[in-house]
Amino acid sequence: MAWTREQMAARAAKELKDGYYVNLGIGIPTLVSNYVPEDVDITLQSENGMLGVGPFPLDNEVDADIINAGKQTVTELKGTSYFSSADSFAMVRGGHIDLSILGAMEVAENGDLANWMIPGKMVKGMGGAMDLVAGVRRVIVTMEHVSKDGASKLLKECSLPLTGRRVVDMVISELGVFDIDKKGDGGVTLIELADGVTVEEVKAKTKAKLSIDAGLKVA
C-alpha cells in the first residue's frame, strides 16, 4: 500500500512554509496546491510571467491571456502581478523563489537530476526546468520510485542527460520521503515511509547509496 499521486502531493504540501514563493511543475506538483495547509499562505509563481496564480477559472471567467507555464487557463488573485520572461527568470535565477517542486525521470544520490530528454527519442526541450533547479533555493522532486519497466529511478548516477548537477534536496515517491545530500557525499536518507511500505521494499527498489534515518517515521 504505497502512496497515491494525491497522497504524494499532500505530503509535498507539508514542506510549504508560510510566506513562501513557490514554483510548481506539471503533473503531481500541480496537485500540491490543493493541499496547502490552512494556516500557511503561499504565493505561486509561474515562469511565463505571473506571480500570484489563482485556481482554474469558472467557465465564464476564462481569459485567453491568463495562462500558467503549462499553458492552462488560470485566474488572478488579489495582489497578482505580471512581468516579462526576463524579470520572471530574474526571480528564479536570483534566488528569490523559496521552493520548486517538479517531476523527474532520474535522481542521483548526489542530487543530480535528469528530467528533460531521452536520447534517440523526440526531444521536447527543457523549458524553464534548468533555470528553476539551478536558481531556486530548495528543490523537491515528486516521482514514481521505479520506471514502467521496473528500473529504479533513485540511482548512484543518472544515465540520462542532466537537467542540473547537485540540485535536488528531497525526493517524495510513492514509497516515502528521502533527503538528498547534494553538497556532500552522504547519499540518500530515508526519513519517512509511506503507508504499508517496508524498509526492505525501499532498499530493493533503490540503486542509490541509502541510509535509514534514526528517527524514521512510518506513516
Partner: peptide, 9 residues
C-alpha cells in the same frame, strides 16, 4: 534548445 531563462536573458 536554450533553457527558458537563458533564452530570455
Amino acid at each position: 534548445f536554450n533553457p527558458q531563462g537563458t533564452l530570455a536573458e
